[in-house]
Structure formats: structure tokens, C-alpha cells
Design a protein around this nucleic acid. Sequence first.
DNA 1: ACCTGAACACCGTTCAAGT
DNA 2: ACCTGAACACCGTTCAAGT
Lengths: 187, 187
Amino acid sequence: MPTPQRTSLTAIVEAARHIVETEGLANLTMQTVAVRVGVRAPSLYKRVRNRDDLVRLVTEDTVGALGRRLHAVAVSGDPREDLGELCRALRAFAHEYPVCYRLVFAAGSEASRPDVGLFAEAAAPLLRVAKELAAPGDALEAARMITAWAHGFISMELANAFNLGGDVEHAFEYGIARIADSLSRTP
Amino acid sequence: MPTPQRTSLTAIVEAARHIVETEGLANLTMQTVAVRVGVRAPSLYKRVRNRDDLVRLVTEDTVGALGRRLHAVAVSGDPREDLGELCRALRAFAHEYPVCYRLVFAAGSEASRPDVGLFAEAAAPLLRVAKELAAPGDALEAARMITAWAHGFISMELANAFNLGGDVEHAFEYGIARIADSLSRTP
DNA sequence: ACCTGAACACCGTTCAAGT
DNA sequence: ACCTGAACACCGTTCAAGT
């Protein structure tokens, strides 16, 4: 005799994302997730393969949310301006969800790594602006340069690696300007 | 009656670093470390506070090794050339010890985070070349730009985020050239 | 002074038994 | 068809007892 479903994959991933962000990855246990969605821990295995799988789902959910954020950035027509807005949107997202953001490039175990195709989709707006900014044929290299710098900056910021004082906001704007310069001046 | 020491902090950290690099962070257990140094798990607590503390020690060990690598890069006198060599040395180190390298900026739990002062010491050569390359007064911003880009590039590479094909080696060299351009052209 | 076995709480995961 | 209690292996950590 069928039993009514007491939860859903969506609810589980949402609960997990909330726990990861507020309590940290270490406190994401099948137990805490189960309590939050109102079932017992073994029931979670009806929807997710295991804990690594759940971490992967949370990460992919985050990549999706980030992608939507970037796609929503207003297009001004000026590629230099758009580059700045995209970088600031990326940074703002990372500050809002620092733990989940780190998950995206954290790599952890093989099974918890997000699908590679989602990266490309989320980063599409950056590829577009890179194409507008850089010399023809350099679009891919330019896009990698932008994402590498922006992600690296944010990642070091979140890791507290900027410990020599100075104005971090100013350093970020300085970086945007230098990146835009270097790409647009390339012959 | 005193018992002779059967291991040392150095041996424990070395064993832990080996396990992390070859088996992954998840397989770093007090048990596996203990077996490798020839004692029982509880004995490890005579030298390290807990597992997080051990992870921190492994991370700091890695930062130290990385710093020595960067300090050992030959100084050519040409800042542009030196910038390239430093970036390549950083990347080579990350490829040699990918798991440990990730630990450096991974952040994990509070207690496993490395001492902030060690970052600055390891990155000193990069700060020096930034000072030579950039406009006076921009040294700190320039150094942050360099490290952010290089770390970001490597971090995305290790996370398998470069999935659109293309020549990654070429993209790295492209980045070095663009960074050098943008810093040296700054008024 | 250091090392160990035993013990505890906790976690991921499986599965037979319930509805 | 989904949910659950019970059980298992494993892990971090503590501590009294050994030498």
C-alpha cells in the first residue's frame, strides 16, 4: 500500500543548502537534513545516492543561481562597463553565499563535483563581454583571464588572504580597470 | 618511568601530507596517520590538538614549501621575465601537489586555516616584482592582481572548470603577458 | 613521560519490516 | 511505494591504566 511522500528532492537540496551556508559543510549531516525536512535519515536515500551526491546537488544549485545572477546583469552596450558589472555581481553573490560559493571550485571528492557543462552556461555572459572586449580570436583566452582573476580575487578574499591592509574595494576596482585595459589594448 | 618517543610532530605532519596528497583529504583519518607513523591513534593527541589542527599543520607546511619555491626562482633583473617565472613556479607547484595546494585557500573549518602571516611571507617575491612593474603607490594593488589571477587560473584548472577546449598552456602565457602589459602601462 | 585498550558519541549507509 | 527502527562499520576523542 503506497505511502504519501513526506518530502521532495527540491526540499532536501534547499534544506541542505541552508545548512551548508549557515552551519558550514562539516555540519551537513544526513541527520540534520532529515530533521529539517521532517523525515528520518534513511528516507533521504530514496532521493539522493549518498552525502557526496547531496553536496553535488547543492553545488549545482549554487552554480545555477549564480548563472541567473550573471545573466540578469543589465547590458549597457559599453563592454567595459558590462565587464565591471559582471565582476561586481559575481563578488556580491560570493559575499552573500560564501560557503556555497567556495563549494563551486572546491573539488572535494569526485562524486561531489558539479557537472562541467553548468560552468560554461553560468559563465556565458562573461564569454560574451570577453568577445566584445578582446581582439578577434582571443575571446576564449580573454574570458579565462577575466574569470580567473575575478574568482581568484574573491577566493583569496574569502580565505582571508588579503592581510596586508589596504582598501580591498579599491583593489577590486583597480583589477577590473587593469583587466579591461589589457584586453582592449591587445592588437 | 619515561617511555621513549615513538614518533614526532614532524613525522606526523609528513605522514599526513603524504596521505592527503595520495588518498585525498577524506581519507586523512587519525587511524591512517597513526598506522603510517607506527603508533595508535590516541597517541597522536600528544602532539596535535585534533584533526583540524593536523590539517592546519599540513596546510602551513605546504605554504612554507611553496614560499621556498617562489623565493628560489632566479632573479633575471627583468621584472617582466621574473613575473612569468614566478607564475610558472606557482603553477608547477600546484600541479605537483594539487590536493595540498587547494588546502591553502580552501578555508574549511576555522581551526584548520593557516596562519595569515605565512601567506605574506610566501608571496613576498610576488610583491617585489609587483613593485618593480607597477606605478609607484600601486604595488599592493598590483600584487593582489597578480596573485588573484594566477591563483584563480590554477584553481579553476584544478577544478576542471576549463571545459571549453582550447590550449590551457597558451591561455596561461596569454594571461601573464596581459597582466604584465596592464601593470607596466599604468601611469 | 609517553603509549595503549577500552569506551563514548556520532556519522553514513543498508535493509528487513511496517503501512 | 515510501518510511522507519535497528544494526553495522567507521571515525574523532577521552581517559584510566600500563610501562
